[in-house]
Amino acid sequence: MKTRDAVIEVENLCVVFGDHVVLDQFSLNLYAGENLVVLGKSGSGKSVLIKCIIGLLRPDAGRIRVLGQNILDLDVHALDQVRAQVGFLFQSNALYDSMTVRENLEFPLRRHWLQVTQKEVDQMVYEVLESVGLEDTTHMMPAELSGGMRKRIALARTLILKPAIILYDEPTTGLDTITALEIIELIKQVQLRYRTSALVISHDMKLAQTAAERIAVLIDGKCYATGTYAELKASTDPNLRAYFD
Protein backbone atom coordinates (compact mmCIF):
# COMPACT_ATOMS: atom_id res chain seq x y z
CA MET A 1 0.00 0.00 0.00
CA LYS A 2 1.14 3.52 -0.73
CA THR A 3 1.40 6.12 2.03
CA ARG A 4 -0.98 8.48 0.23
CA ASP A 5 -3.82 5.99 0.75
CA ALA A 6 -3.57 6.21 4.52
CA VAL A 7 -6.77 7.47 6.18
CA ILE A 8 -5.25 7.38 9.66
CA GLU A 9 -1.56 8.06 10.30
CA VAL A 10 -0.21 7.71 13.81
CA GLU A 11 3.40 8.77 14.28
CA ASN A 12 5.59 8.40 17.35
CA LEU A 13 2.64 8.61 19.74
CA CYS A 14 3.54 8.86 23.42
CA VAL A 15 1.03 8.73 26.26
CA VAL A 16 2.13 8.74 29.89
CA PHE A 17 -0.18 8.41 32.91
CA GLY A 18 1.82 9.41 36.00
CA ASP A 19 4.88 7.16 35.97
CA HIS A 20 3.32 4.63 33.61
CA VAL A 21 4.26 4.86 29.93
CA VAL A 22 1.18 3.59 28.06
CA LEU A 23 2.22 4.31 24.49
CA ASP A 24 5.88 4.73 23.62
CA GLN A 25 6.73 6.08 20.15
CA PHE A 26 3.79 4.16 18.69
CA SER A 27 3.40 4.43 14.90
CA LEU A 28 0.74 2.88 12.68
CA ASN A 29 -1.17 3.61 9.46
CA LEU A 30 -4.69 2.57 8.49
CA TYR A 31 -5.17 2.44 4.73
CA ALA A 32 -8.36 3.19 2.82
CA GLY A 33 -10.75 0.26 2.68
CA GLU A 34 -8.81 -2.08 4.97
CA ASN A 35 -9.80 -3.83 8.19
CA LEU A 36 -6.91 -3.48 10.61
CA VAL A 37 -7.01 -5.24 13.96
CA VAL A 38 -4.75 -3.99 16.77
CA LEU A 39 -4.06 -6.87 19.15
CA GLY A 40 -2.83 -6.38 22.67
CA LYS A 41 -3.26 -7.63 26.20
CA SER A 42 -5.69 -5.97 28.60
CA GLY A 43 -4.20 -2.72 29.88
CA SER A 44 -1.69 -2.53 27.04
CA GLY A 45 -3.00 0.85 25.85
CA LYS A 46 -5.27 -0.21 22.96
CA SER A 47 -8.25 1.85 24.13
CA VAL A 48 -5.96 4.80 24.88
CA LEU A 49 -4.72 4.62 21.28
CA ILE A 50 -8.20 4.66 19.80
CA LYS A 51 -9.33 7.48 22.10
CA CYS A 52 -6.32 9.55 21.04
CA ILE A 53 -7.27 8.99 17.38
CA ILE A 54 -10.80 10.32 17.91
CA GLY A 55 -9.57 13.22 20.07
CA LEU A 56 -11.00 12.08 23.40
CA LEU A 57 -7.51 11.92 24.92
CA ARG A 58 -4.60 14.19 24.14
CA PRO A 59 -1.24 12.44 23.77
CA ASP A 60 1.91 13.77 25.40
CA ALA A 61 3.82 13.65 22.12
CA GLY A 62 3.44 12.48 18.54
CA ARG A 63 1.24 13.23 15.54
CA ILE A 64 -2.15 11.88 14.47
CA ARG A 65 -3.57 12.58 11.02
CA VAL A 66 -7.14 11.49 10.30
CA LEU A 67 -8.40 11.90 6.73
CA GLY A 68 -5.48 14.22 6.08
CA GLN A 69 -6.11 16.49 9.10
CA ASN A 70 -3.73 16.76 12.03
CA ILE A 71 -6.35 16.38 14.74
CA LEU A 72 -4.12 17.68 17.53
CA ASP A 73 -4.07 21.12 15.85
CA LEU A 74 -7.81 21.38 15.16
CA ASP A 75 -10.25 23.62 17.02
CA VAL A 76 -13.46 22.12 18.41
CA HIS A 77 -15.53 22.92 15.32
CA ALA A 78 -13.00 21.44 12.88
CA LEU A 79 -12.56 18.39 15.13
CA ASP A 80 -16.34 17.82 15.08
CA GLN A 81 -16.26 17.87 11.28
CA VAL A 82 -13.59 15.16 11.26
CA ARG A 83 -15.52 13.19 13.89
CA ALA A 84 -18.62 13.27 11.66
CA GLN A 85 -16.66 11.10 9.22
CA VAL A 86 -15.37 8.71 11.88
CA GLY A 87 -17.69 6.27 13.61
CA PHE A 88 -16.75 4.99 17.07
CA LEU A 89 -18.18 1.79 18.51
CA PHE A 90 -17.56 1.91 22.25
CA GLN A 91 -16.67 -1.18 24.26
CA SER A 92 -19.65 -0.57 26.55
CA ASN A 93 -21.85 0.43 23.55
CA ALA A 94 -22.51 3.79 25.26
CA LEU A 95 -26.18 3.88 24.27
CA TYR A 96 -28.02 6.72 26.01
CA ASP A 97 -30.11 5.04 28.71
CA SER A 98 -32.75 7.77 28.79
CA MET A 99 -33.44 7.64 25.05
CA THR A 100 -35.22 5.11 22.86
CA VAL A 101 -33.34 3.27 20.13
CA ARG A 102 -34.70 5.75 17.60
CA GLU A 103 -33.60 8.77 19.66
CA ASN A 104 -30.17 7.18 20.10
CA LEU A 105 -29.82 6.87 16.34
CA GLU A 106 -31.16 10.36 15.65
CA PHE A 107 -28.87 12.03 18.19
CA PRO A 108 -25.60 12.14 16.16
CA LEU A 109 -27.56 12.91 13.01
CA ARG A 110 -29.27 15.95 14.47
CA ARG A 111 -26.12 17.18 16.19
CA HIS A 112 -23.86 16.94 13.12
CA TRP A 113 -26.34 17.63 10.33
CA LEU A 114 -28.49 20.49 11.53
CA GLN A 115 -30.45 20.90 8.29
CA VAL A 116 -31.74 17.32 8.04
CA THR A 117 -35.52 16.89 7.52
CA GLN A 118 -37.74 14.45 9.44
CA LYS A 119 -38.34 12.42 6.29
CA GLU A 120 -34.60 12.01 5.73
CA VAL A 121 -34.12 11.09 9.38
CA ASP A 122 -36.84 8.40 9.16
CA GLN A 123 -35.24 6.97 6.04
CA MET A 124 -31.72 6.90 7.52
CA VAL A 125 -32.90 5.34 10.78
CA TYR A 126 -34.71 2.58 8.88
CA GLU A 127 -31.73 1.99 6.62
CA VAL A 128 -29.18 1.53 9.42
CA LEU A 129 -31.53 -0.60 11.50
CA GLU A 130 -32.09 -2.80 8.47
CA SER A 131 -28.29 -3.04 8.04
CA VAL A 132 -27.96 -4.53 11.52
CA GLY A 133 -31.16 -6.59 11.27
CA LEU A 134 -33.14 -4.82 14.02
CA GLU A 135 -35.86 -2.87 12.21
CA ASP A 136 -38.48 -3.52 14.92
CA THR A 137 -36.64 -2.00 17.87
CA THR A 138 -37.16 1.72 17.24
CA HIS A 139 -39.36 2.34 20.30
CA MET A 140 -37.44 0.10 22.69
CA MET A 141 -35.20 1.40 25.46
CA PRO A 142 -31.56 0.20 25.64
CA ALA A 143 -32.32 -1.60 28.93
CA GLU A 144 -34.82 -3.82 27.07
CA LEU A 145 -32.20 -5.07 24.60
CA SER A 146 -29.85 -8.06 24.91
CA GLY A 147 -26.06 -7.56 24.85
CA GLY A 148 -25.81 -8.52 21.18
CA MET A 149 -28.73 -6.27 20.21
CA ARG A 150 -27.17 -3.34 22.05
CA LYS A 151 -23.93 -3.89 20.17
CA ARG A 152 -25.84 -3.90 16.87
CA ILE A 153 -27.74 -0.73 17.76
CA ALA A 154 -24.47 0.94 18.79
CA LEU A 155 -23.03 -0.07 15.41
CA ALA A 156 -26.15 1.30 13.69
CA ARG A 157 -25.57 4.60 15.50
CA THR A 158 -22.01 4.80 14.17
CA LEU A 159 -23.25 3.97 10.63
CA ILE A 160 -25.99 6.59 10.48
CA LEU A 161 -23.55 9.36 9.54
CA LYS A 162 -22.10 7.15 6.78
CA PRO A 163 -18.55 7.40 8.15
CA ALA A 164 -15.43 6.84 6.07
CA ILE A 165 -13.71 5.16 9.02
CA ILE A 166 -15.08 3.09 11.90
CA LEU A 167 -13.14 2.58 15.10
CA TYR A 168 -14.19 -0.51 17.06
CA ASP A 169 -13.18 -0.74 20.71
CA GLU A 170 -13.26 -4.41 21.77
CA PRO A 171 -16.43 -5.20 19.77
CA THR A 172 -16.74 -8.81 20.96
CA THR A 173 -15.86 -8.37 24.63
CA GLY A 174 -18.57 -9.58 27.01
CA LEU A 175 -20.52 -11.42 24.29
CA ASP A 176 -21.11 -15.17 24.10
CA THR A 177 -19.31 -17.08 21.34
CA ILE A 178 -22.24 -17.21 18.91
CA THR A 179 -23.15 -13.53 19.33
CA ALA A 180 -19.46 -12.61 19.00
CA LEU A 181 -19.30 -14.50 15.69
CA GLU A 182 -22.44 -12.67 14.51
CA ILE A 183 -20.83 -9.31 15.36
CA ILE A 184 -17.63 -10.30 13.53
CA GLU A 185 -19.72 -11.20 10.47
CA LEU A 186 -21.58 -7.89 10.78
CA ILE A 187 -18.29 -5.95 10.87
CA LYS A 188 -17.27 -7.63 7.61
CA GLN A 189 -20.68 -6.95 6.00
CA VAL A 190 -20.57 -3.30 7.06
CA GLN A 191 -17.18 -2.87 5.45
CA LEU A 192 -18.45 -4.30 2.18
CA ARG A 193 -21.74 -2.41 2.17
CA TYR A 194 -20.50 1.00 3.31
CA ARG A 195 -16.92 0.72 1.94
CA THR A 196 -15.46 1.89 5.23
CA SER A 197 -11.98 1.52 6.63
CA ALA A 198 -11.96 -0.10 10.05
CA LEU A 199 -9.56 -0.02 12.98
CA VAL A 200 -10.52 -2.75 15.43
CA ILE A 201 -9.02 -2.87 18.92
CA SER A 202 -9.25 -6.35 20.40
CA HIS A 203 -7.65 -9.25 22.16
CA ASP A 204 -10.02 -11.70 20.45
CA MET A 205 -7.95 -14.01 18.19
CA LYS A 206 -11.07 -15.30 16.43
CA LEU A 207 -11.93 -11.74 15.43
CA ALA A 208 -8.36 -11.13 14.27
CA GLN A 209 -8.37 -14.34 12.25
CA THR A 210 -11.71 -13.80 10.50
CA ALA A 211 -12.10 -10.03 10.13
CA ALA A 212 -8.55 -8.65 9.81
CA GLU A 213 -6.78 -8.01 6.56
CA ARG A 214 -3.81 -6.83 8.57
CA ILE A 215 -2.93 -7.17 12.24
CA ALA A 216 -0.77 -4.89 14.39
CA VAL A 217 0.47 -6.24 17.72
CA LEU A 218 0.83 -3.75 20.57
CA ILE A 219 3.45 -4.77 23.12
CA ASP A 220 5.05 -2.51 25.76
CA GLY A 221 3.44 0.57 24.22
CA LYS A 222 5.01 0.00 20.81
CA CYS A 223 3.75 -1.37 17.52
CA TYR A 224 5.71 -4.59 17.90
CA ALA A 225 4.78 -6.25 14.60
CA THR A 226 2.38 -5.93 11.69
CA GLY A 227 1.32 -8.43 9.06
CA THR A 228 -1.46 -10.74 7.98
CA TYR A 229 -2.79 -13.36 10.36
CA ALA A 230 -0.86 -16.08 8.48
CA GLU A 231 2.40 -14.10 8.55
CA LEU A 232 2.23 -13.41 12.27
CA LYS A 233 1.12 -16.94 13.10
CA ALA A 234 4.16 -18.29 11.23
CA SER A 235 6.52 -16.10 13.27
CA THR A 236 8.91 -17.77 15.69
CA ASP A 237 9.19 -14.68 17.89
CA PRO A 238 8.20 -15.82 21.43
CA ASN A 239 6.29 -12.57 22.09
CA LEU A 240 4.08 -13.24 19.07
CA ARG A 241 3.80 -16.97 19.73
CA ALA A 242 2.14 -16.07 23.04
CA TYR A 243 -0.80 -14.71 21.03
CA PHE A 244 -1.03 -17.31 18.30
CA ASP A 245 -0.37 -20.59 20.14
Binding site: I54, R83, F88, F90, S92, N93, A94, R111
Partner: peptide, 17 residues
Protein backbone atom coordinates in the same frame (compact mmCIF):
# COMPACT_ATOMS: atom_id res chain seq x y z
CA UNK B 1 -23.55 6.42 35.23
CA UNK B 2 -23.12 8.20 31.89
CA UNK B 3 -19.44 8.74 32.64
CA UNK B 4 -18.61 5.14 33.58
CA UNK B 5 -20.57 3.70 30.62
CA UNK B 6 -18.80 6.06 28.17
CA UNK B 7 -22.05 7.87 27.24
CA UNK B 8 -20.37 11.24 27.85
CA UNK B 9 -17.54 10.27 25.48
CA UNK B 10 -20.13 9.08 22.94
CA UNK B 11 -21.83 12.46 23.18
CA UNK B 12 -18.54 14.22 22.52
CA UNK B 13 -17.82 12.20 19.37
CA UNK B 14 -21.39 12.89 18.23
CA UNK B 15 -20.60 16.58 17.78
CA UNK B 16 -21.99 17.64 21.15
CA UNK B 17 -20.26 19.52 23.91
Amino acid sequence: SMRVTEQIDAMEVSGTN
